[in-house]
């Protein structure tokens, strides 16, 4: 009812006025999310600080101490070194999962036979608690980089493959019909219509894969291979340096959040121009 109607003549004046009026409104609502975000962070950190000062638990240090520990660990180089150790298998694992997952996903989306053969496996694997298999990796591949990389792949691959599959299967049928009606070959159909149309969803799957990869690498480090951030967590816990331990845990959670946010920003900016600005 209140939506402006596109008309000409003297309604153009009203429409113009609406646009002028809308511009400051958008600027205001653009400012506000940042304000809210600051407030939101302040609220949670404040509650954390107070809860730590009371303290609600002997093993619950206030935020200020944890942050100080974070700075100490950054300064003495133990945190950066641990990250180098942790990120290596994560990146390798995610890259392999991406190549393999997108490939399998596209194959499943395009061929009925591979769909029938492979999709159920991934459906089971995605629903299943794959973490149970992580201890197994240790026997075969020891406690090195390979085990950790495999743990990442184990958790990241199913979600990437399934998203790729769904993206291809749900490619806009009208676009495919359009391509057919202009006598596009099957190859053109796939390369020029189906895959570009599916890209945003495939990329969203990648984001989920990265999130799963973080879970996998942390699990591997905590469970089987005492290296990297997982080792920092385990070590500081064993010597009761709780501030350092919390700093390591919080830093990996924040790093994962930042990575995912960056991927999402990239997705919106590059892959979904229609969503830009909204």
């Amino acid at each position: 009812m209140t939506a402006p109607v596109r008309l000409d003549g003297h309604t153009a004046g009203a429409l113009g006025a609406g646009q002028v009026a809308a511009a400051p409104a958008r600027r205001a609502s653009f400012d506000r999310p940042i304000l809210w975000r600051i407030l939101s962070v302040a609220l949670v950190l404040g509650v954390w600080e107070i809860a730590g000062q009371i303290p609600i638990n002997f093993a619950f240090p206030p935020f200020s101490e944890v942050f100080a520990a974070f700075l100490r660990m950054m300064a003495d180089g133990s945190l950066p070194a641990a990250y180098a150790e942790t990120l290596k298998p994560l990146v390798i694992g995610v890259v392999i999962s991406t190549v393999l997952g997108v490939g399998l996903g596209v194959a499943m989306g395009l061929s009925r036979l591979s769909e029938w053969l492979v999709a159920p496996v991934f459906i089971v694997l995605q629903a299943a608690p794959m973490a149970a298999l992580v201890p197994l990796l240790t026997f075969v591949y020891g406690i090195g980089l390979l085990s950790k990389t495999l743990a990442v792949i184990l958790l990241a691959l199913p979600v990437i493959a399934l998203n790729g599959y769904k993206a291809i299967r749900n490619a806009n049928p009208t676009l495919v019909a359009m391509c057919k009606s202009f006598l596009g070959t099957r190859r053109q159909q796939i390369v020029k219509v189906i895959i570009p149309d599916a890209t945003p969803v495939i990329f969203a799957g990648l984001r989920l894969g990265v999130a799963a990869g973080f879970i996998g690498v942390m699990l591997a480090e905590l469970l089987i291979t005492p290296t990297g951030i997982g080792d920092l967590i385990t070590y500081h816990r064993s010597v009761a340096d709780y501030a350092e331990m919390y700093a390591a845990v919080a830093s990996i959670v924040v790093l994962s959040a930042l990575t995912l946010a960056a991927l999402q920003a990239f997705e919106v900016r590059v892959l979904r121009p229609e969503k830009r600005g909204s």
């Binding site: 999310p33 809210w36 975000r37 407030l39 939101s40 962070v41 609220l43 949670v44 973490a131 989920l208 999130a211 973080f214 879970i215 690498v217 942390m218 699990l219 905590l222 951030i229 997982g230 967590i233 385990t234 816990r237 331990m245 919390y246 845990v249 990996i252 959670v253 994962s256 959040a257 995912l260």
Partner: peptide
């Protein structure tokens, strides 16, 4: 607005890293 950011953070956070804290 106050909680959304945190819920979104934790929904995809590597929660396995939090288990030692819980312990």
């Amino acid at each position: 607005k106050l909680l959304g950011m945190w819920v979104n953070l934790f929904v995809s956070a590597p929660l396995s890293a939090l288990v030692p804290v819980l312990m």
